[in-house]
Design a protein around this nucleic acid. Structure first.
Length: 218
DNA sequence: ATAAGGATGACCT
DNA sequence: GGTCATCCTTATA
């Protein structure tokens, strides 16, 4: 797929309906593997942003000390215990939002955290929302969970609990026929508890995966 | 390397 | 009511 310039009035070029609720009913690991390569789409009026999911992490419930759901249901994490396919958005470090998607059947907590996207469309708008210059490298737009939420305008106030499987939803995840190549598994990033579990999944050799690389980028 | 930043939950009184 | 440690990060130097 080609990237567009992100101009106003761009029409969605990713065909297809949002992924169905059944897609999210499995375990977080399973959903994490399968969601790689799918496309996150945010629509606002005639404008839209889209990016391919290239990096995610899986979080469980009572058996995962690093998960928000670990200590049981609270007002903040209630979405995780609800039906799958809904967005769990939380605010962290006083400035960033993070986007998760609830997995597992209703009553069981679990989710995947979206950590990085490859920008596909709405790129100019992403640059604006990120406060970057007109020629900022694409990698600075959506390589990181906070960055991608800023680029897409995702906040807890407007998106927490949103059903991503509804065709009418402002935020959706769709399949566009892309075939994900090799998937790499590693420990999750930035956590202290259960840090050894291999629950981070990303597309091998994709430049938009977050985190430190050998030299280039940041 | 590390400062910035704010919501949350746990634990008090 | 209040305080405090924690937190799935990012942009700087």
């Amino acid at each position: 797929m080609k990237r567009d310039s992100g101009g106003a009035g761009h029409v969605l070029r990713v065909a297809g309906k949002p992924l169905p609720r059944s897609f999210y009913q499995g375990s977080p690991e399973l959903v994490a593997r399968e969601i790689l390569g799918k496309v996150l789409v945010a629509t606002a009026g005639s404008r839209q942003r889209a990016g391919r999911i290239v990096e995610v992490e899986a979080y469980h419930g009572a058996d995962d000390p690093a998960a928000h759901a670990f200590t049981g249901i609270t007002p903040r994490n209630a979405v995780l215990f609800g039906p799958p396919g809904h967005a769990y958005v939380y605010f962290i470090y006083g400035m960033h939002s993070c986007l998760n998607v609830a997995c597992e059947p209703e009553g069981r907590a679990g989710c995947i955290l979206v950590r990085a996207l490859e920008p596909l469309s709405g790129i100019d708008e992403m640059r604006q929302r990120r406060g970057l210059g007109r020629h900022a490298p694409l990698r600075q737009l959506t390589s990181g969970p906070g960055r991608l939420c800023q680029a897409f305008g995702i906040t807890r106030a407007t998106h927490n609990g949103m059903d991503l499987t509804s065709a009418a939803s402002e935020l959706q995840i769709v399949e566009d026929g892309f075939r994900a190549g090799n998937v790499v598994v590693s420990p999750r990033i930035g956590i202290r508890k259960a840090a050894e579990r291999p629950l981070r999944f990303f597309l091998a050799d994709n430049e938009f995966v977050s985190g430190r690389r050998s030299r280039a980028g940041q």
